Simulated assay, not measured.
Amino acid sequence: MSAAPAREPGEIFGPRVTLFADVLSVGLITAVVCLPLVTVPAALSTACEVLRGGQRDRPATAGRYLTVLRKRLRPGDLAAGALALAGALLLAADLALAGAGLPGARVFAVVAGAIGACAAVIGLRACARPESLTDWRPAVLGAARDVPRDPGGSALVLLALAAAVLCGWMMLPLAFLAPGPLALALTAIDVRNRGAVRGARSGP
Rank of each mutant, 00 (worst) to 15 (best):
F13M: 09
L83V: 13
S132Q: 08
T46W: 04
L83F: 14
V197W: 08
T134F: 14
A109Y: 04
R125H: 05
L172V: 02
A47L: 00
A4I: 08
G76E: 14
V165A: 15
L66A: 15
W136P: 15
A84D: 11
I29V: 14
G180D: 02
A120E: 01
R106P: 06
P204W: 13
A119E: 04
A175F: 01
A88L: 15
V40Y: 13
P130T: 10
A120M: 07
L66N: 14
A144T: 00
L73A: 09
A84I: 11
G153Y: 01
A200M: 10
W136R: 07
P151D: 06
R70A: 09
P181A: 05
R137T: 15
V17W: 13
A42K: 10
R194P: 09
P204Y: 12
E131G: 11
G168F: 03
A112W: 04
P138Q: 15
M1E: 09
A43T: 08
L85P: 13
W169H: 09
L28P: 06
A188W: 14
G152N: 00
Y65K: 12
T30E: 00
G116W: 00
A114D: 04
C48I: 07
A178Q: 05
G168C: 03
A43G: 13
A109V: 05
P181Y: 06
R129H: 08
R137H: 13
L66E: 07
G153D: 00
A86E: 12
A100Y: 08
T18K: 11
K71W: 12
E11A: 12
A128T: 11
P130E: 03
V23R: 00
P9N: 11
A119I: 01
S2D: 15
L37H: 07
L184H: 12
A109E: 12
D190T: 06
L141T: 07
L186T: 09
L66G: 06
F13G: 15
